[in-house]
Write a protein that binds this DNA or RNA. Structure first.
Lengths: 157, 157
DNA sequence: ACAAATTAGTTGCGTACGCCACTAAATTCG
DNA sequence: CGAATTTAGTGGCGTACGCAACTAATTTGT
């Protein structure tokens, strides 16, 4: 009869707390790994998405990264300042800005990509390739709009 | 022969990026959930750890939360300002500060705890109780010192 | 065509976090 | 016992994020 409320008092009963704790840990490790490029791990993530998307609108990028639009704007600021990224008004819709990598941005991204690959290999080795793949999939699911809606929908109980 | 480098170009090839993205998503949802208490999700996590530990030293708390000591200090500041938490010099070792909940801190934590439990139930329902438990365990592992060392140890290749 | 509503971003403010440099208190050791 | 070292926190600075309020550009409804 103890199965009703499983692990309420567990240190990480709250998934959100557990994710943030993990985020802090990985942040330290990955920030250090990317340091030779002069990038933070978060900045690499942004550059990488830009590189893959080409010249996305800020809104598109924000959505992909599950990031508030204003947060993306803030995050982009140091990258623009350091000449890795450029914002350009879209001539067809002058409200939107296109984000693109500068020449230097491409260079830096390439170097960071090598580090990223190395880190991915390390992670797979330490955690197991299978398990790592499954974890990534799980995280993607939880970060998805659909899951958020499923969670929010229960508010109407 | 394509199995050598599995999913390097996947959006979340980088576990760190995936965790952060998930963290942002959950942050929005949980921050909103805790809003009635006047707390952010992160603040609840801190209060909860304090409540469980009693009157921990700052350093102990930081370690538990996998947080930089100075970061903890910063995070505590608004909580102290709002009268939820108090810092007290340990008379046996005047270097260390003990963290403790004020009367109001206990009240607020109790209210937040109810919300936390409700959210945990919702999460379990949306994600599956089994899967959720396993995920928490996985996250705890990745956040552990041991795993960090396993990851760092590979730097000597 | 034009006022109202919608969409895309920005700015200001506050919290979240980490690193480095610095202070203070304790511990170690010659 | 007093100097050097270690340990615990703080403060400054910079990035990471989100919300609310505001501006500018586009779309819609009549």
């Amino acid at each position: 009869m103890k199965s009703a409320k499983p692990c309420t008092d567990n240190p990480s009963a709250c998934v959100n707390g557990a994710v943030r704790r993990t985020s802090r840990r990985l942040g330290q490790i990955y920030d250090e790994a990317y340091a030779p490029c002069g990038l933070k791990a978060t900045q690499y993530a942004v550059l990488n998405h830009i590189a893959k998307a080409g010249t996305p609108k800020m809104g598109e990028l924000a959505q992909t990264l599950v990031m508030d639009l204003s947060a993306l704007g803030h995050t982009l600021k140091p990258l623009v300042r350091d000449g890795l990224v450029e914002l350009r008004v879209d001539e067809l819709d002058r409200r939107t800005r296109r984000v693109l990598l500068t020449e230097q941005g491409v260079q830096t991204h390439a170097a960071a990509k090598r580090i990223s690959n190395k880190m991915a290999e390390r992670f797979d080795l330490a955690f197991g390739r299978e398990a790592a793949a499954q974890l990534r999939q799980t995280l993607d699911l939880i970060a998805s709009d659909a899951f958020a809606q499923a969670l929010l929908a229960q508010a109407d109980d």
